[in-house]
Design a protein around this nucleic acid. Structure first.
Lengths: 240, 240
DNA sequence: TTGCCTATGTTCGGTACCGCACAGACATAG
DNA sequence: CTATGTCTGTGCGGTACCGAACATAGGCAA
């Protein structure tokens, strides 16, 4: 956080060829992403796409009764605002900052313009979108068939992959909202993981002590999603 | 079924400008889609995109333990094989024919070629893909928060919107697989709907007697998905 | 018709999770 | 240092759904 910022901390931006990157570089605006901030709400017009560097954003749907469930997370591997280049401009879902940090944002018209050049940027964005769809599909299946503890492990590992440290700043309540369960369910599952020595919990902070322990408890969904992200976005050349 | 076939029965194909359509028309191949046929299995290379006319295809994920859950359905409003133009070529999900019928298929290279012309075809496919993502998101949330009966109603209504008749040819067992629940759960939920006079069940055939009754029992997810499909694909001009 | 397979209905015990209520423990502001 | 609000732990009854086992009945084939 205290280090200097660079668009290259976002994998998509880092994967752009120099010429493409320089065209948009001057328009990339570093913005702080405070915990809980909504980047967009249902059916609300988007004005920017956000390329997270240290922040993590949760894409989720809130039901009429107020219950919610995360459908996918976006960190430094991706971009928030898919709907801009897909052509819909809005979505019925919400995007909320789940881990505070920073992102570079780009005005929607510039993103669309760059997408329509049909160059590597377009290809990257489309492949990323497909990876995002995989995450959504897997989440749907995971929500049906796997236990809270398994889903908690999946969530922790996916989040851990997006931050540099072993510590996540988040309350059990917030995790419960993401997973669409009661807070007490998280208390119990996290308690099990803590007793097993895999994590350490402290009032809004989780430290992962033994990553392999989580990997032993997690359902297949984590591995499938991770593998798919690697597959779809692996063969890119990073600048710098 | 007995009537003559036309690519225009598929909404995406019907929405293409004449010039675009004529370029691919000769390459569109009518294929029968028998119940239970797998169009692709996990990580298997796709060779064709399928534009259903009377068939309905279920996109779903099968877990390692053999449990499965539908993430989205594709009927005459869409196309199976998104991964071809998104750039991933394969997905970890499966696509299986859920309602027998027909589809027009197009060789993958031709689809990619047409997509890369960056004309209306591209725009249509991208908007359709976004609608599909909405369906996946909603399914994830719906799986967490809504009852089997609500989800059954959602599934029935979405399927009904894709067929001309009021009768669906499907067993409770198959519906259970789609929704990712036990067959007994469907027996009970369908029994309730039958007692309420909304549907009539007969060994592999469901007839919807009172659509408004289903709409009264369904969760919001149906309406949100439907509205989003309408919004994203409404402003197209249909040929013929 | 008869026989057989498959689809549907029903029951039973078990469990994962929910909703609610409340107690304690930590962390920060004053 | 104390007060206050937030976060976490725990217990309770209730329920939706699961897994398995089995009964019944519809529809097709011979």
């Amino acid at each position: 956080m205290l280090l200097s910022h660079s668009p290259n901390q976002n994998h998509l931006l880092a994967a752009l060829p120099t010429a493409d990157f320089e065209r948009i570089a001057a328009h990339l605006e570093l913005v702080a992403m405070p915990l809980g901030k909504y980047l967009y709400e249902p059916d609300e017009q988007l004005w920017h796409a956000y390329f997270p560097t240290t922040a993590i954003v949760s894409l989720h749907y809130v039901t009429e009764s107020g219950a919610s469930a995360e459908t996918a997370g976006v960190g430094n591997e991706g971009v928030v605002g898919i709907a801009l280049f897909m052509g819909g401009d809005t979505t019925p879902s919400s995007a909320m900052v789940q881990t505070a940090g920073h992102a570079y944002r780009l005005e929607s018209s510039l993103l669309k313009q760059e997408f329509n050049r049909a160059g590597l940027m377009q290809s990257l964005l489309l492949r990323y979108t497909q990876a995002l769809m995989t995450q959504m599909s897997l989440t749907a299946a995971c929500n049906r068939h796997h236990s809270i503890e398994q889903r908690l492990c999946r969530w922790l590992l996916l989040t851990l992959d997006r931050v540099p440290s072993q510590e996540l700043v988040i309350t059990q309540e917030q995790i419960a909202i993401m997973l669409g369960v009661r807070r007490e369910g998280i208390t119990e599952a996290a308690g099990n993981l803590q007793r097993a020595g895999n994590i350490h919990y402290r009032r809004g902070h989780i430290t992962v002590l033994d990553r392999s322990g989580l990997e032993a408890s997690v359902c297949e969904c984590y591995g499938v999603v991770k593998k798919e992200f690697d597959r779809l976005l692996c063969d890119v050349q990073y600048r710098t």
